[in-house]
Design a protein around this nucleic acid. Structure first.
Lengths: 196, 196
DNA sequence: GGCATGATTTTAACGATGTAAAGATTAGAT
DNA sequence: ATCTAATCTTTACATCGTTAAAATCATGCC
């Protein structure tokens, strides 16, 4: 079997990271459904069962990718929250921007892709909660304590929903999607416009 | 092969509806990923390729289920909008209630399940837009025209996001989920609580 | 009533997938 | 240099979606 640079060593030498980056490319090409252990092996220049030395299953690869995603999303939100505008709006914009830049990954992190039911996606749920906690912590600096839980869920719902609608192509693509996101998220602070 | 009532006719006699209802049960048991043409056949007391007389593919079965879902969701929203409270809040509550009552179906309608990329899920996108239009129409009776587009997307994002978070078990299950939904959706009218 | 026609379903088969088991190859320590 | 453990391959199995061909049934026509 040949490595992807043409040489033909028996040992790949750098397989685990290669598998992950190939998997991630696959994920962005075709969404979570396109993740395939055989295809990952093929593109990595390696036979399919080789992956089983580093991951117990295809689901384990998906979980590793999701974990990467949560780290990156978390960093991205942190950066926005610490940036020049240091407000919730900036955090929300960063959140949606991450989803738009990594739609396959975002769907993996928050969609099915793991059997949403039955199985032990307990780890994923915890990672999601961590992101939620990040928003919540920030809200605690701004609101009275009893308002926080509902405000946090409100904000998360809005941001999550907007992110999904956008990566699902459900928002008519205007000239400047970032501006659109900002317009929508701004309404969170004011509520809907007054009735006429 | 035996029918599910024990008799053993060659012709099933009522196959198409049976396939759909079995598929829907499967969908709610295990989510969109659990849809399997062979399992549908098995549970319908029929061989797998029999389904191909009524549907071109597994995706076609999924599409038919999704269509059912959109009809039901639409009716449910209409009923709420025409009901005693006849306001947007009631519509939103009905929307989320539908998702909570049919989580598998809702995920099929709005999640992946169809290859979100590449393929022709154009019909699904149109059906989604129809639901969106329903909310939008109602908003038009209440707001000045230029406010409508952003308000509609705002509302849809919030409702859709909340629905998904709830059926993903991401909202700590309190005593009364319906009340929680109402609390959150109410914030859409007022905006976030004032800073302390 | 007998029979042809068309609708419905079955069996058999193909290619692809995830994964397990067993063997080959290689790197690194002693 | 040899032994050991890590890494990777080949082979194999069960399952899946789907196609092709054959079997069975229902129905209208004579």
């Amino acid at each position: 079997m040949a490595t992807h640079d043409g040489s033909t060593r028996y040992h790949h030498g750098n397989l685990r990271p290669t598998l992950l980056s190939v998997a991630r490319a696959l994920l962005e090409e075709g969404g979570p459904a396109a993740l395939s252990i055989r295809e990952i092996g093929r593109r990595s220049g390696v036979s399919a069962p080789a992956a089983y030395h580093y991951f117990n299953s295809l689901d384990a690869i998906a979980a590793a990718l999701a974990e990467q995603g949560f780290v990156e999303l978390s960093e991205s939100i942190d950066a926005a929250l610490a940036g020049p505008r240091r407000n919730l709006l900036a955090g929300g914009i960063a959140y949606v921007a991450f989803a738009r830049a990594n739609p396959g990954l975002y769907r993996l992190m928050f969609g099915e892709g793991f059997q949403a039911y039955s199985k032990g996606n307990e780890a994923i749920r915890a990672l999601r909660m961590q992101v939620y906690g990040q928003m919540k912590d920030d809200l605690e600096k701004r609101l009275t304590p009893e308002d926080v839980p509902n405000a946090a869920l409100f904000l998360w719902s809005l941001t999550h929903g907007l992110a999904l609608l956008m990566i699902d192509g459900q928002v008519e693509p205007g000239a400047d999607p970032d501006a659109k996101v900002e317009d929508i998220l701004k309404l969170a602070g004011m509520g809907l416009p007054a009735a006429r």
